[in-house]
Simulated scan of single mutants.
Amino acid sequence: MSQHTPIGLDNSTANVTALTHSGNFHVDETLGYVILHYALAPDGDLIHRVLGDAAPDRLTFIRTRSPETIKTADIVFDVGGVFDPTHGRYDHHMRDKPLRADGTPYSAAGLLWEDYGKAAIRNILAAPADDTVIASIWKTIDKSLILPVDQDDNGVAKMGKLSLADIVSACSPPWDTAELYGPEEARLREGRGFANAAAAVASHLVNMIDRARASLKAADRVMAAYEQAEDKRILVMDTGMPTEKMIFEHDLPVVYVVSPAGPDQWNVKAIPPTRGEFGQRVSLPAAWGGLERQALATVSGVQDAVFAHPARFICGAQSREGAVRMARLALEIDSEMKRSNAQ
């Protein structure tokens, strides 16, 4: 990382507008927002700022894909196609993406952690800490949390899921709470910790039941779409929903799933060889990887092509027809390549 003073840390009162993409969200941009919250405006309302109904503070947070709005934001992460920390740009989806010293690609969270992590730690800690302690904490979190997020978001290694027991345990006050704050405060914090844990467990249970309901509904729709498919290798879904469970449980020969990703975009997602793992039964064409819009349209011949991920597991077009065309072209290119290699 280059040496510079990150935007917002040079002036503790200046207003800052941070922006990431709208639509489907993942752990890296969600964590990225949390890092910026604690680094720049820890006293603000983390939840209601996202909802847009919080009392104004120095950090404004926007989720959009509008190129015009992206240009005006002070900090842009996980979108925009530019990595330039000196100007507040923290995307990582380019062909020449930023890498860690060991070669691991950064995610947006990893890039923001480099610049804002220590400031976030200082604001989170209840008591002041010297630079050595901050650096040690930063390194520990980088290894245990940020690096796995980087690996997961870039298709290097999948994160393990936190157990509910771990989440509940994390709600408990640290062992030295009584030592730091006294027995009465420790008792109060233990009560608040239990309340927080109960809320987390209740939310988890409700969500799990609702997801189970939705999974049953998705199963019927996936099988209906498969029965109607002209090419059984391409599954076209009119609504985004989980599909891998049915594909692997029924040993369906699906290679690509085409589904809407918003009002003006349809994605083509490659199915992995084994459920839940990275990799693809058939990767998207190498020539497409990392390209966007006109560059991708020129190479692919699909005029409304939007993007193709550098890892070649997902691409998209503005229309259903364009996305289906990309899936068909990818299969044709793969077949031609295999024939050439066999000769």
Rank of each mutant, 00 (worst) to 15 (best):
T17G: 04
T17F: 05
T17K: 09
A18T: 12
L19I: 10
T20S: 14
T20P: 01
S22V: 05
S22H: 11
G23F: 01
G23L: 04
G23E: 07
H26I: 00
V27W: 00
V27P: 00
E29T: 12
T30W: 05
L31E: 07
L31A: 15
G32D: 10
Y33T: 12
Y33E: 07
Y33K: 02
V34G: 08
V34H: 02
I35L: 09
L36E: 05
H37A: 11
Y38W: 14
Y38V: 09
A39E: 03
A41Y: 01
A41L: 07
P42D: 07
D43G: 12
D43R: 06
G44Q: 04
D45K: 03
L46T: 05
L46Y: 04
I47H: 07
R49K: 06
R49D: 14
V50Q: 06
L51P: 06
L51G: 15
G52T: 11
D53L: 06
D53N: 14
D53Q: 02
A54S: 14
A55T: 12
P56D: 15
D57K: 06
D57I: 13
R58E: 10
R58T: 13
L59N: 08
L59I: 13
T60S: 15
F61I: 15
I62F: 03
I62P: 00
R63G: 09
T64E: 04
T64A: 13
R65V: 05
R65Y: 07
R65E: 05
S66V: 12
S66R: 12
P67L: 13
P67I: 14
P67Y: 06
T69Y: 04
T69K: 13
T69S: 11
T69Q: 14
T69E: 15
I70E: 09
I70Y: 00
K71R: 15
K71I: 03
A73V: 12
D74Q: 12
I75K: 05
I75L: 15
I75Q: 02
